[in-house]
């Protein structure tokens, strides 16, 4: 079995984003999905700070401090793109106008709860940003995360132990081992990396899995 690297995971997510979709990519790992949308497929990328139609990264020296994404990285705007204020930007999110958001996560539960904003540690300074709005507002909430923690525990869990970002909102999880749908009757494995079988994936995951 060979785990997927970050770019392979991003490419796998990108395969599922269809032509014409309005998509918000979370900070960090999900941002990589943008690099794997096939040329010619028109997908409109949204960012919370007030931009729709994000283009490729600017060339070195062409960055503009006024044109950034939610991760505060310099971006470009495609012809046809637009700028808008924060309440409009979150009306797009909370008004269920986005087809997809892709979020990172600490944990996802079998019922589709997501925890990704706060470890709950007493000395941690919490920060939430737009995560709770995206979790509640996007029509399809996709999660991209490593299957296991550094110490080998499954990040797919019966019930999240970290504070929740949103309840019952995640529809599909992309890990470095598998793609798993979350449905009312449980977790369905859509596909797995080469060399991995359901028994081994089940052993690593801990919560019950079904083969689609």
């Amino acid at each position: 079995m060979k785990k997927m690297d970050r770019n392979q995971m991003a490419a796998r997510v990108a395969r599922d984003i269809p032509e014409g979709a309005y998509v918000n990519l979370g900070i960090g790992l999900p941002t990589l999905v943008a690099n794997h949308i096939p040329p010619g497929r028109e997908v409109l990328l949204h960012s919370e700070n007030g931009v729709l139609g994000i283009g490729p990264k600017p060339a070195p020296g062409k960055e503009d401090a006024d044109l950034i994404n939610a991760g505060k990285e310099p971006v470009t705007l495609l012809p046809g793109g637009s700028y808008f204020h924060h309440a409009d930007s979150f009306a797009m999110i909370r008004g269920q106008h986005l087809d997809f958001c892709v979020l990172g996560a600490f944990q996802v539960s079998v019922s589709g709860d997501i925890a990704n904003w706060h470890t709950g540690a007493p000395d941690a300074i919490p920060a939430v940003g737009g995560a709770m709005d995206l979790a509640m507002g996007a029509r399809n909430v996709l999660v991209m995360m490593e299957h296991l923690t550094k110490s080998g525990e499954s990040k797919l869990v019966e019930r999240c132990t970290y504070p929740l970002t949103g309840a019952r909102c995640v529809s599909r999880v992309y890990t470095d081992l598998a793609v798993i749908d979350i449905r009312p009757d449980g977790l369905h494995v859509v596909d797995m990396v080469e060399g991995l079988d359901l028994a081994e994936l089940q052993r690593l995951t801990g919560v019950p899995l079904k083969r689609q």
Binding site: H86, A87, G130, D133
Partner: peptide, 13 residues
């Protein structure tokens, strides 16, 4: 510190 989700912050304003 009063922590508010970003969209709720925008909508409260």
């Amino acid at each position: 510190l009063e922590l508010v989700p970003q969209g709720t912050l925008a909508e409260r304003i």
